[in-house]
Design a protein around this nucleic acid. Structure first.
Length: 551
RNA sequence: GCGCCCAUAGCUCAAUUGGAUAGAGUGUCUGACUACGGAUCAGAAGGUUGGGGGUUCAACUCCUCCUGGGCGCGCCA
């Protein structure tokens, strides 16, 4: 639909431009806010005012006259409105043709090839393996996973990756905490460090170790067995994280260990590469990266006085590694509290010659959790937090994901567990799923009555009601919404669209009877329902939410 | 102190990346099938988009200042 319009306008402009002789701007089309204005509109006349030094309405007139001359035959009418909008209204045949091709090509007509097979890597969640995932990670997982589905459907070659921070102090701290609990378990009162992890899960790990290995570490100091315990503990946490994600419906293509990067000498290697570009220097006994040569406000230490690499050094290496693996676009999804980190990573990627626009950070804002309308205080260290696991078990993955995806990633979100749990109209998920289930039920009903339905061969011209035309137009809008979603990396747009589509469908269903004695009409209406079902299915799949035949 | 993000209907959030009369859900009020799933539908009320100034054909959107909130600012990760 969009392509047709742009093509027609382009043709008209090209023809007019033999007279104008200017550099034509991009043609932008949009759906008017108010349905009575038309089906699709362009603002191109207004964009030309400056270049042509003519009033926009006058330019619009010229364009419309030119289009009329070319007689594309798609339009019921074309109008100039407001300051210079050109509004197009489609003929019914054109709209029915759109529905027809949706029914014939089904899901493939809803995908796109704007990605052209470009290799894109999306890194998300990447939680420290020092504790279970909390609800904030869940939001990142939902957004990241949906985004990847969307990018795939848009023709990108996508890889989903989880980066494991298994090299640093935090893992040691986890080990120390588990060690202390293990000793306490066996009656040996080892003091628990102030900054240790205090959650119950730490005790669980200690118990688990005791079950498997017995009293083996009882008389050992932390120095003697700390590494073994740390190792065991974080691996257990990692398995736990992986299971939680799987049960949430999120899977990764690849898990990258930070420790491994060190062991393979890649960290040192990456720093050396920077050094060869003259971006590394020594000062005060430490080694620095000149990130201020790019857009950072201070240079950053990559190797400390004590000779250890910093976390940032691993991250330099990790991002270089991504590039070495041949990705031409890199998307990092981080918690919003890491936003201060953007300039330095941007600097790193620029240092490795990645063009600015090929690196993208999506920040996931905080989730404030409510129970009975009261905020729940979260603190990972203190062990007081609601885990993703609890939410999955209590609320369910579909609802949780959908709620996470009804907000822009970058804005804070309130998540009330009790409201989410209610299987009521409060829950927009059900509204969409219900539309799907309702249509499924219609087909069961029709089958029961012996209706023979083969979607591709139905005469659609019986679809004449206002609600029917409106519904088809909504369906045909999907590709535009989808493309915008992929380009902006904003999954929530799909969520909104699905709610609107479900709304238009429910209204239609309520007003008109689908299955009747008129066989031709029944078939046409079932075809329309089939179209709605396909689009709902596609959209829900992208979000990672199930589309149930019955509820 | 410096930097980044947010402020939209009573509440939770959108607004096609600068477009037309700022929209949904929820809550409040009023209504709707002896038919295909009432987890539904129709309608009403609800706004100086935190405030001032600026940029232009056009500003919720961009610039600037102010107010109020969140988060960063380590040779931690």
């Amino acid at each position: 639909m969009k392509q047709d319009i742009i093509y027609i306008i382009r043709k008209a402009l090209d023809s007019l431009n033999t007279e104008w002789g200017i550099a034509l701007p991009d043609i932008e089309v949009e759906v008017p806010r108010d349905e009575t204005m038309g089906d699709i509109a362009t603002t191109v006349a207004m964009r030309l005012t400056k270049l042509l030094k003519k009033p926009p309405r006058k330019i619009a007139e010229e364009i419309v006259a030119e289009i009329a001359m070319q007689q594309p035959g798609y339009f019921e009418n074309i109008e100039i409105a407001g300051p210079g909008f050109i509004n197009f209204r489609f003929k019914q045949e054109y709209i029915l043709k759109g529905l027809q091709s949706l029914l014939e090509e089904e899901h493939s007509s809803l995908r796109s090839d704007i990605g052209k097979g470009a290799k894109i890597q999306v890194e998300f969640v990447s939680a420290n393996p020092t504790g279970p995932l909390h609800i904030g990670h869940g939001r990142g997982a939902a957004v990241g996973s949906a985004l990847c589905n969307i990018l795939k459907a848009a023709g990108f070659d996508v890889q989903k990756e989880f980066y494991i921070n298994d090299a640093g102090l935090q893992v040691k701290l986890l080990g120390r905490s588990v060690y202390a609990r293990y000793q306490q378990l066996l009656g040996n009162n080892v003091p628990f460090s102030e900054d240790g992890y205090k959650g119950d899960y730490v005790e669980d790990i200690a118990k688990d170790i005791h079950e498997r290995e017995g009293d083996k570490y009882l008389n050992k100091t932390y120095e003697e067995c700390g590494e073994l315990i740390s190792d065991y503990a974080y691996k257990m946490m990692l398995a736990n994280i992986s299971t939680d994600l799987k049960d949430f419906g999120v899977e990764f293509d690849r898990w990258q260990s930070e420790k491994e990067l060190h062991e393979q000498g890649k960290v040192e290697n990456a720093i050396n590469t920077l050094r060869s570009k003259d971006l590394i220097y020594e000062k005060d006994g430490a080694v620095w990266f000149s990130s201020t040569r790019f857009e950072d406000d201070k240079d950053r230490v990559v190797r400390k006085q004590d000779g250890e690499y910093t976390y940032f050094a691993s991250d330099i290496c990790y991002h270089k590694d991504k590039l070495d693996r041949g990705f031409d676009t890199i998307v990092d999804i981080w918690g919003a509290d890491h936003h201060g980190y953007i300039p330095r990573i941007r600097s790193v990627l620029e240092a490795f010659d990645l063009p600015k626009e090929k690196f993208r950070v999506i920040l996931i804002q905080m989730v404030s959790l409510l129970r009975h309308g009261v905020p729940v205080q979260m603190s990972k260290r203190a062990g007081a937090f609601i885990t993703l696991r609890e939410v999955i078990d209590e609320v369910g993955p579909d609802i949780t994901k959908f709620i996470f995806l009804t907000r822009k990633a970058d804005s804070q979100l309130e998540f009330d567990i009790d409201v989410a749990k209610e299987q009521s109209a409060e829950n927009p998920v059900f509204y969409v799923q219900y539309a799907f289930a309702r249509i499924s039920s219609l087909f069961r009903q029709a089958e029961g009555k012996g209706v023979q339905f083969t979607p591709a061969s139905v005469d659609l011209s019986a679809l004449k009601e206002d609600e029917e035309i409106l519904l088809i137009k909504k369906l045909l809008l999907y590709p535009m919404v989808f493309e915008g979603t992929a380009l902006a990396c904003e999954p929530h747009r799909i969520t909104y669209y699905l709610q609107e589509l479900a709304g238009v469908f429910h209204a239609y269903y309520y007003k008109h009877r689908i299955i009747s004695d008129d066989n031709g009409l029944t078939l046409a209406r079932l075809s329309l329902c089939r179209g709605v079902k396909i689009v709902l299915d596609e959209g829900l799949k992208l979000l990672g939410v199930s589309a149930p035949e019955r509820m």
